[in-house]
Design a protein around this nucleic acid. Structure first.
Lengths: 206, 206, 206, 206
DNA sequence: AATGAATGAGCGTTCATTCAT
DNA sequence: AATGAATGAACGCTCATTCAT
């Protein structure tokens, strides 16, 4: 028999609020999402939300920090298991789009809502997003050290390039909500073009 | 001596409102931009804005339609003068980032606000953005017909990939407002990686 | 050939504005009627209206004063031609409803819009409306002097009673806009009941 | 000691808002009454009003429906206790003017505002006002069945006639705010004239 | 005289946040 | 801890009125 303590119940309620907020933010957009609607969706009273979060902004920030944090940890773990930088790029692309497909609401919020306020991006999202970008940056630098990626490729540009490409495809999916969209193929294609683009000539068909 | 008629003065005021709105939207975001602030910035009364635009939404929509429309026309004209698809990609990338650097406020609005509301994107920005994306799509298809670009590259993915890459770099610039940003170099790098990525082996160093 | 002087043209424009205002007030109600709409209907510019009337209120007041004034003059003239007080009551009722039928817009304004502000009724309508009511009051007093109407009838109450009755029927017509409404019959019925009510027993079937 | 539950306190607040609105509407007219003024008068915040009513229109509509509804119930009950149709007319007239004197603000709103907007009258007040008018209509028809009222009297006209007469006297009172107004005498006079007007000859002095 | 573009005060309504229970 | 009724600041928009042309 499972014993659920006070702490666990609190944590569970907090999660429920975050999940509901993500859903509503995705559906309506941050500014059109109403606290009362999030509360209703989460099955709590309006006031209860303020026992867990300072204000509406903080809900969005929390969604960002916690989910991107978790995603980064997951990516790091997965990438460690892959020795080849090119394979890492392929896996990164695959994982990125897989997460978008598996968590469309979260993706929608990260894609669309987070961009809307400079403040969010500058003050909060900055670090986490940078950490995420650096996952790619590190792969590229490793590939350059291993002499498989072109040396004239600037990792700071290239990492944004791959991210931007994946992000753009994700946006397409988020907006169209086309469930038949073939992520595997898209991820493979993006990784292929990107790798062709940054690989040294002699490693092009690896 | 310049003779300014009634029509011209009206058009000039309309432009001033759009410019002010773009600036305020860029600075604060659409939802935090106040009509009264836009009016003050434009040097008109609040009510005057409603002589030119139906409501706040329509100001944003007009900014999209008119500026993206103008940009597309400019791009089309420029690209016609360039015969080589690879050069077209290079020029497209350069132009895109040049516009971002020359019109940071407009870029900011197109980058950030455009994404914010499904409604805007789907109903209004959709077509213009699609037209813009198709500029790239056409280049790619021409390159494929001319046998210089890989046939296994899906233009629908690739066009979004280049756009996403440029967009991401633009976001970086818009957010950092780093005036020393070398967009010529960034454009060249992005174009290089992208072209290496989609070019047939025999044309890699063209 | 008719020669239309400056004065005549001004007067004509003034009339046109009043006619348009009456129509719009009737259709939309005073508060929902827009000056620009009245101007459009009258075929003049918004500002022109202010050359003829101090403000929106004054248009309504003018409609009231001028039209009720004209109506009172017309009634006086007509009633003078009728010797019998009972016949005067019948003619008054007939004329009242005839005017409502002939000028539905004016009737609508007098019925509905003028009531909406105490200020109008107290400050402006007071005198004219009183003059109108006194037309009935005088008939009743004449009838009492001529010994055909009951002496215990209070003219101040009775005059309001007949007016209220006619007014109520007019409201019904104004609201329903039932063009098939039989005014002659209604007027006859109201006059009949009223006369039966105030006539001395010996004159009941006069 | 009175125990006041949550429901009761809410109902009390709702009543307070309606009472305040009635007072302000009576004093200023619907369009000149400000929500903030109603709120201040009721001792609540502006926003609180919207917890109880959808919008300003609905406050007016509610006043109509609830008060006219209550009045009609009160009249029905009272009239049932009176067997003679002529006495019913007398009591109806007395009650009508008594209510006007006891609730001058409500009377003012019903008198003046009710008339102001076709929309209100047609959509909302229509039914209630009709029910009220039919109280008189039923009395008249009963009197005709009982052979005490003239058969050539059209109940549809006659009911409006009595109502119009009472209404007009009420308007006089509402506008003058003459507290010394003898509504008993006025009611008696109106009922007398009306009854003389519709009674069969043989029942004139009943 | 006539115009109609411009003005800006004013108000209904929303909704994040608070706090008494 | 949880509630949800109450708050009130904030803002988009309207429209009577003005005034430069």
């Amino acid at each position: 028999m499972k014993f659920v303590g006070k702490e666990a119940r609190k944590a569970e309620k907090r999660e429920r609020i975050l999940r509901s907020a993500t859903k509503i933010f995705a559906r309506k957009g941050f500014y059109n999402a109403k606290i009362s609607e999030i509360a209703r969706e989460a099955g709590v009273a309006d006031g209860t939300i303020y026992l867990y979060f300072k204000n509406k902004d903080e809900i969005l920030i929390t969604i960002f920090e916690e989910s991107v944090g978790a995603i980064i940890r997951r990516f790091r773990k997965r990438l460690q298991e892959i020795p080849d930088p090119a394979d890492q790029v392929r896996e990164f692309s695959r994982l990125h789009l897989e997460i978008v497909k598996t968590n469309p609401d979260l993706a929608s919020v990260l894609q669309l809502e987070l961009r809307q306020s400079n403040r969010f991006i500058k003050e909060y999202a900055g670090t986490s997003l940078n950490d995420y970008l650096n996952l790619i940056g590190d792969i590229i630098q490793n590939g350059q050290k291993a002499n498989v990626f072109r040396e004239d490729v600037h990792p700071g540009i290239a990492k944004r390039m791959l991210f931007g490409a994946l992000d753009e495809i994700s946006t397409l999916y988020v907006l169209l909500k086309d469930r038949s969209f073939d992520f595997q193929r898209s991820a493979a294609q993006i990784a292929s073009i990107f790798l062709y683009g940054i690989a040294k000539d002699e490693y092009r068909n690896s």
